[in-house]
Structures are given as structure tokens and as C-alpha cells.
């Protein structure tokens, strides 16, 4: 079992510069406790995706450390990186990038198969992951023939099948119609995992994540309760974050509290 004191994710003084020398991350510190749901907010170009790609060691080399449930991300140490990539499940923005196998079931099996799961257990993993996102009926379908919302859900399943300790979603609500957006929210809310969600969809952040972090120009600019951050007009304007017309975070938070 995971020690309660060990954070699910611990990022400390993380730096990174693009090959052309432009700084992308300038000392990011972020700690997420097991089971926490955190939204990562910030304008375009703030370094959100760069940070995400550091969490499983795809980008590295700029200084600073990343630890996942106590295991440091050590580039070059292949077994350790394989374990990190099992623990950190990243759902990318375009499901067509994530779903590359000919059928849904094969795609969901890809991750666990890479970590050595075989046979009946692999089938069980696939069934479990597809059931968690409500896509069990589509296991033998071709990804191309699914709707966009269904493909996004399958993309979440491909990562869930690896039983990650932390689920990282890049813009989960983008391009979804309102019904698919709500269905995905219900699925995400039902999952018992630590969640880090990169998003521009502020109401979505408020709905799903009690805590939010604002990343701007490669630094953590604010870290706190989502409702409080969204209600701080100065802070929001200062980081090019805007609420949809007519959206009142305080009222929305209150109605959310009523519901649960």
C-alpha cells in the first residue's frame, strides 16, 4: 500500500528549455496527494503540455526532479521509466493520436501488454477498463467508426487499463458536445484515481477539481481552491484566463455543494 505521507506526484524546481533556448519551465514546484483532483490552468504557451510530458520522462534534462509515488523519474533507467509510464497515464488531446490499433480492444490492451500482462488477465483488464468508461459494447469496433466523444472515452480506457496511480488528461473536454462533456465528467468523477487535468474549460475544472494550479510563463502562479481562484478577478485577468459569459463561480460552486 502507498504510505499516506508519500505524495502521488512531487515535482520540485523543474526547469526546461526548448532546443532553441526558449525557457518553457522555470522552476515548477507541485505536490499532489493520493486521490486528489487538480486542474492545471494557464494560457496557451504557458508550458502546461511541457510539464505533462515531464511527468512520465518523455521530456527531461533541464534540472529539477519529478517523483511519482516516491519513485523518481530517472531518464535512462529503462525499468524505472517503464514503471513510471505505467503509473502515470496520460490521455492526449486528440483521440486519433492515442488510438492507433485496428480495434478498440487491441488498443486498450496495448499498454498493459507492454508491461507484460498476458492472456486471461489481459482480457480482464480490457473488459474492466472499457466497462469503467461505458464502452464495453464497442470492444471489437474500429476506432474510426466511433463518435468523437466515444473515442475520447476509449482513450481514457486505454490509460485506465494500465491501472495508473495518476491520471493526466490534456484538454479532456475539448471538441466534445455538451452531452459527451457531461458523460465524460460523470466517468471521471467515478474513477478512484489521482487526477491532473490540463484545461481551458474553467467550469469543467470547477466541476471536477476541488483544487487548481495556474501555470504561467513556466512558473506556478497560483495554487488553491478552484472556486477561490476563479473568483479572483485580478488573478484571472493577469493570466489571460476568462470565464464564459455569465458564469458565476461562486453560484456554481454552491450548486455543486448542494448536489453532492
Amino acid at each position: 500500500m502507498i504510505d499516506v505521507a508519500t505524495p502521488a506526484l512531487n515535482v520540485s524546481r523543474l526547469h526546461y528549455a526548448y532546443p532553441d533556448g526558449r525557457a518553457a519551465l522555470r522552476g515548477v514546484d507541485l505536490t499532489i496527494a493520493p486521490g486528489e483532483r487538480v486542474a492545471l490552468l494557464g494560457p496557451n504557451g504557458a508550458g502546461k503540455t511541457t510539464l505533462v510530458l515531464h511527468l512520465n520522462g518523455i521530456l527531461h534534462g533541464g534540472g529539477g526532479t519529478v517523483e511519482v509515488s516516491g519513485l523518481p523519474v530517472t531518464p535512462g533507467d529503462r525499468p524505472a521509466i517503464a514503471e513510471i509510464r505505467r503509473r502515470v497515464g496520460i490521455v492526449f488531446q486528440d483521440p486519433d493520436d492515442q488510438l492507433f490499433m485496428p480495434t478498440v480492444a487491441e488498443d486498450v490492451a496495448f499498454g498493459p501488454a507492454n508491461s507484460g500482462v498476458r492472456g486471461a488477465e489481459l482480457d480482464a483488464r480490457v473488459d474492466e477498463a472499457l466497462a469503467a468508461v461505458g464502452m464495453s459494447d464497442h470492444r471489437d469496433h474500429v476506432p474510426h467508426h466511433l463518435s468523437f466523444g466515444q473515442r475520447r472515452r476509449v482513450a481514457v480506457a486505454t490509460v485506465l487499463a494500465m491501472r495508473p496511480e495518476i491520471l493526466v488528461l490534456d484538454e479532456p473536454s475539448s471538441n466534445l458536445d455538451p452531452a459527451s462533456r457531461r458523460e465524460l465528467a460523470e466517468i471521471l468523477e467515478s474513477l478512484p484515481v489521482t487526477l491532473l487535468m490540463v484545461t481551458h474549460d474553467l467550469p469543467y475544472a470547477l466541476e471536477l477539481c476541488p483544487r487548481s494550479v495556474i501555470l504561467d510563463t513556466g512558473r506556478i502562479a497560483a495554487d488553491g481552491e478552484t472556486a477561490a481562484l476563479l473568483s479572483d478577478r485580478e488573478l484571472m485577468r493577469g493570466h489571460r484566463l476568462e470565464l464564459p459569459f455569465g458564469f458565476d463561480p461562486a453560484a456554481a460552486a454552491a450548486s455543486r455543494a448542494d448536489r453532492s
Binding site: I58, F92, A109
Partner: peptide, 17 residues
Amino acid sequence: ERVYLAMVSRGYTGRLP
């Protein structure tokens, strides 16, 4: 490139299962 990133993130090491 994006597909490759997504594959590597799920533990791809050069062989399809």
C-alpha cells in the same frame, strides 16, 4: 510524432504486443 509520443507514454519499446 504525436502517435509515437502517445505510444511511448504507454510503454512502447519498439515491439507491438
